[in-house]
Amino acid sequence: MNNPDESTIQRWLKGELEGNELKQMEAWAEENATELEAKMGWDALGDEIAQALPSEQEPPYADFFNERVKHHAVELVETPPATKASPLWKRFNWILAPTAVAGMVFCFYLGTRIDQETTAIEQSVAVLEEVYTPASGVHSEVIISGDSTVIVLDGLDEIPDALDIVSGETGQGLSPRMMVKTERESFYF
């Protein structure tokens, strides 16, 4: 379509075009969107709308938001999302089973030789089932140190130096102790 006349444009804007005429008008509009906007005197109102309405707005209780997503995405599902098809070499993993059996027999033999100290470490290793850090940017590392289990949390916010926690100062916010667990879960997580 060459330049449509004013009547065609107005009919289009009113939603009155159909079929081929509509397709041609749409194609023309796509090529000449800027001109059409200027013709309509749209720019000023477009800018007003862009300024009046937020393009981005953090949801309330943002940490809780993330944790709820994780809860529904991962924790309520028994198996993680399917990964892509295995590469060819993984399809020969049938050979792993007999190898694994042989390995287990060997390890069992070794295990009968392991002393008390190692047994204590195995018990310590069993201390933790999972460590979950809800805040983004925070990650945990579990270290077995002798007979002790150590969790190292990295990426936490620093407690402000000015906050005198020894004297009893605390940051802002509603104390989670003030709520019963079920109520707290809906407020925080």
């Binding site: 940490d63 999972e130 979950y132 850090t133 925070v138 945990s140 289990t149 936490l156 509603l174």
Partner: peptide
Amino acid sequence: SRKKIMKAGPT
């Protein structure tokens, strides 16, 4: 600071 930073299931 009244935010949960870790959850674990220790024995």
